[in-house]
Amino acid sequence: MKKHNLFLTLLVIFFGILMISPVYFMVKISISQPQDIFTQHPTFLIHNTTTKWWAWIFSTKEVWAPFIKSLEVATLTALFSLAIAVPGSYAISRLPPRVRYPLVLGLFFTRMFPEVGIALPISVNFIKWGLLDSVLGLVIAHMIRILPLVTWILVGTFETVPKALEEASSIDGCSRLGTLRRIVIPLAAPGIAVGTIFAWLGSWEEFTYAVYLTLAERTLPLQVFYYINRGNWFLTATYATLTAIPVIIITYAMQKYLRAGYMAGAVKG
């Protein structure tokens, strides 16, 4: 028994270090002097710290345009997705099972399509429609991957709202829209909140559509890509940390919702 515990402890420490170290190195580089990084033997611990990379992106105001664009796109994507997915998934949840399951599974399988295959015609069309580099264009593109996910979460939520409550409300003379607004949506509010946050995160960290639809007005993930292509590790790490901070905070705040079913759609490698 003793031996088994020691083995388990070692495994736990090993995997723990493995999971933390990439994030640790990212933060470390963003606050390191070049001599600690660009050397034959980079240091593991933090020695000569500097805030100059962080100060630089803020003092040159370079960070604000991408930051604001990412914020706008993520917020609008979450709101628009909600506006379409809430009514849609409510209706799906009230369909008979033999229609509902194929529909939900079908939505899930839109994820099977390669994103580069969707982003290509979208980009070709958006050039024609003048939507390249625009906030609206990117919001539409992000909804392509986020709507099925939000619908998937919301159908599950609406299924838990008992139908008897709706019937009672309609007997009391409430219209169907009124029932939806006064009874169903308040009861489904926690699930709707989870869906909204996942939608926001999914857009905030999105890269593929952004890189296909952007010429000059970069989002934060594109800023990371831009600097790594230019070989500037320090600004890459700084932007990477900045991009990751809200995602880490929200992911931990929502830990109990990190259930396999939700995450299935949310994480992509």
Binding site: G16, V23, E205, T236, I248, Y252
Partner: peptide, 19 residues
Amino acid sequence: VMLLPLGIPTIVSASNMAF
């Protein structure tokens, strides 16, 4: 700790791995 990677955008994990 094991859930930390779920909070890291893929593009960020790519640059971390490049380091």
